[in-house]
């Protein structure tokens, strides 16, 4: 498979993501209608000038809800991915660099946890501790940590005896400085490439939890909730209620993939242009 040229995947990814960020920011101060109030129009009005993306079963404006939903889906994905990247990489670097008992303790815990299906774990935890943005962020970052840890561990372990690591020790760097300031930056490529896959996964799980009614309060304009609210209309011809939030999820997932590709290239100076 050939990849899109760096500049293009970067540009397209950034443009789409930028549009989502803009949408989320605008929704903070203005949406065409109140996204939370039902009955701003009749039930299941098709897309029109008055309601560009139609209305749902309760007569809420789909466009307003979609805009407001960007805050939740984008915010949850970004925060969860950054948390998982930071915590997972740190654990992996420590395991890979120090080895021995530290490595065994970290690697085994990560593997035990990984043997449990992530989505199921997320569902159980959210069911147990209750819905809420913070809970969802924490559980989604938690299920991402093992992958980052294993990636970072493998990268650092393969590089810790390379000449530049040796050279860094020989000029008097402390071991944590060699691990985090010299080896981690060299391992950023695969880690950043993985963030795109992880962000796409997190977006999908967020929407899945919402669709199953486990995520946020059902009235919250989160995209998964919106798809769930529209599912009874899909069969009877009111496609727009579920279609547009689905499209929004697709676009965000795609943007994360493109951007992750470009970020991985940026981490390597030889591939930078």
């Amino acid at each position: 498979m050939t990849r899109a040229p760096l500049a293009w995947s970067m540009r397209i990814g950034l443009c789409i993501l930028g549009a989502y960020v803009a949408l989320a920011l605008i929704s903070l101060v203005w949406t065409p209608y109140d996204p939370l109030s039902p009955g701003v129009g009749d039930s299941f009005l098709p897309p029109s000038v008055e309601f560009p993306l139609g209305t749902d079963r309760l007569g809420s404006d789909v466009l307003s809800r979609l805009m407001a939903g960007t805050q939740y889906n984008l915010g949850i994905a970004l925060v969860a991915v950054i948390l998982a990247l930071v915590i997972g990489s740190a654990l992996g670097v420590v395991a890979g660099y120090y080895g021995g008992a530290t490595d065994i303790a970290i690697s085994r815990s990560v593997e035990i946890f990984q043997a449990f299906p992530g989505v199921l774990f997320a569902m159980l935890v959210v069911k147990a501790v209750g819905p809420g943005v913070l809970n969802i962020i924490l559980v989604l970052s938690f299920i991402g940590i093992p992958d980052y840890a294993r990636l970072a561990r493998a990268e650092v372990q393969s590089r810790r005896n390379w000449p530049y690591a040796e050279a860094a020790r020989m000029v008097g760097n402390r071991s944590w400085q060699v691990a985090f300031r010299h080896l981690l930056p060299n391992s950023m490529g695969p880690l950043l490439a993985f963030t795109s896959i992880n962000a796409a996964f997190v977006s999908l799980v967020t929407a899945s939890l919402g669709f199953l009614g486990l995520g946020l309060n059902p009235n919250t304009p989160e995209w998964g909730n919106m798809i769930a609210r529209g599912q009874d209309g899909v069969m009877t011809g009111e496609w727009w209620v579920s279609f547009f939030p689905g499209l929004a999820i697709l676009g965000m997932t795609g943007a994360f993939y493109l951007l992750g590709d470009a970020l991985a290239d940026l981490a390597d100076p030889r591939r930078r242009r």
């Binding site: 000449p163 050279a167 020790r169 020989m170 760097n173 930056p185 060299n186």
Partner: peptide, 24 residues
């Protein structure tokens, strides 16, 4: 020993290009 490395004794390796960190 760490206090001596780099401060009082330093070393030049054979392969200088491999001894430089490629990302900085």
């Amino acid at each position: 020993m760490r206090g001596i490395r780099g401060r009082r004794i330093s070393i030049v390796f054979q392969d200088a290009r491999a001894a430089l960190n490629p990302v900085f």
